[in-house]
Amino acid sequence: MDTKIKIKSTNLNVFYGEKQALFDINLDINQNEVTALIGPSGCGKSTFIRCINRMNDVIDICKIQGEIEMDGKNIYAPNTDVVSLREKVGMVFQKPNPFPKSIYDNVCYGPKIHGIAETKDDLDQIVENSLKKAALWNEVKDRLQEPGTSLSGGQQQRLCIARAISVNPEVILMDEPCSALDPIATAKIEELIDELKTTFTIIIVTHSMSQAVRVSQKTGFFHLGKLIEVGTTEKIFKNPTNNMTQDYITGRFG
């Protein structure tokens, strides 16, 4: 398959105050692929994906050096419009965080603020499509006006995915999306990720080796803020070049 680089990080350094969280990260993310980031807790995986939609801007003490290019444009260039960047780069969080609104309003929140839908019918259509893509439509189509928080954990997370895809992004960042879910809900989400990759570019942070193997085509191993090794998932898990990667994926540390 002909792969195109969607996101390219060059010499990315991130500091939280005095503490450096990421060291010279150079990582290419391919379009319409799932890239998994693995590594022990606190190694900088989440920090890295939060750089891609500039979520770290919210944190006062966070300083970023280096470049991240998306479609060849540096997203840290001074004239970047963060709002339209985040419209293009959706995010799903570790803990499901539906807004305290109805299921319908949760999904139409993004389209509304970006003025994507012209009419109520358009909006209905977007909500239905997003929920269908997130494999939640059949479960909630009769209770769209109930609060999003009334759903089960797995349903809430799929609602959050529906919310993220409602604005038609190009990239979806997933920060341990299954860590709060049971195996059945996890299986559903993994299945979903596999389908979504035809439309979106997906980056997923995970602590589960088997999940990385199941869903991703490319894997990066982070340790103490450094990108130790990156390659196709098959290569990383069958034939890693670095000893640390070897130790981590076989469960000897982390």
């Binding site: 979520m55 985040r86 807004f99 604005v167």
Partner: peptide, 10 residues
């Protein structure tokens, strides 16, 4: 919740 909203470009 705030991050969820920011992440949608709000």
């Amino acid at each position: 919740l705030r991050e969820g909203s920011y992440a949608l470009g709000a």
